[in-house]
Simulated scan of single mutants.
Amino acid sequence: MSHFSTTVHGDGAIEVEYWPGRTVSGIETSPAVNIILGFASGCLHLSIEHARSLLEALPGVLAEHDAAVTAGESASSTEAA
């Protein structure tokens, strides 16, 4: 299971940590990845499966961003000329 809860104020560092599975008060929890956003009052807690899906998707998302930035810079330089 994954869940997300946050309130972010300003920019800050991102912390990522592995949470091994454990037993708390007789309840077993699954291993997970915990992402803490700087200046946040919450965190993103991802199951290992969701963390793997995010890892797989991020290169494509970041490539889309880079292409958009490059296209924007090209448009700006064409307008300036």
Score class of each variant (00 low, 15 high):
G12V: 00
A13H: 14
T23K: 07
V24Y: 09
G72V: 05
S2R: 03
S76Q: 14
A75Y: 12
A63L: 07
C43I: 06
E49Y: 04
A63P: 03
A13V: 12
S41R: 11
I35C: 02
H9P: 07
E79V: 11
T78Q: 15
S74K: 15
S25P: 02
G10V: 02
T23W: 06
T70M: 10
T78P: 07
M1N: 08
G26L: 02
H65V: 15
S53R: 13
G21M: 04
D66C: 04
E15I: 03
S41D: 12
H3A: 10
Y18Q: 07
V61N: 06
H65P: 04
L62S: 05
N34F: 10
L44V: 08
S41E: 10
A32K: 01
H9K: 12
I14F: 10
H65T: 14
S77G: 13
G21V: 04
D11R: 14
D11V: 12
P20L: 08
A80W: 06
H45A: 11
I14P: 05
Y18T: 04
Y18F: 12
S47W: 00
S53T: 10
E56T: 15
F39E: 15
G72P: 05
M1L: 07
A67I: 05
E17A: 11
T6M: 09
D11E: 11
G38V: 08
A13D: 13
S53P: 02
P20F: 05
P59E: 09
A51E: 01
L46H: 01
G21W: 01
S41K: 13
E15R: 05
V16E: 05
H65C: 12
V33N: 02
T7F: 10
F39Y: 15
S5R: 07
V24R: 04
S53N: 12
L46E: 02
D11Y: 14
E15T: 10
T29G: 12
S74T: 15
A68F: 10
P20V: 04
V8G: 01
L55D: 09
L54H: 02
A51T: 01
P31L: 05
H9L: 14
H65Y: 15
A32S: 08
A67H: 05
E15Q: 09
Y18P: 02
H50W: 03
S47Q: 00
A71S: 13
G60K: 02
A75K: 12
V24Q: 04
L44P: 00
E73N: 11
S5D: 06
S76N: 15
S5Q: 11
I27F: 10
G10D: 02
L46I: 03
S5A: 06
A63Y: 03
E64C: 09
H50Q: 09
A40N: 09
I14T: 13
L44F: 04
L44R: 00
L46T: 01
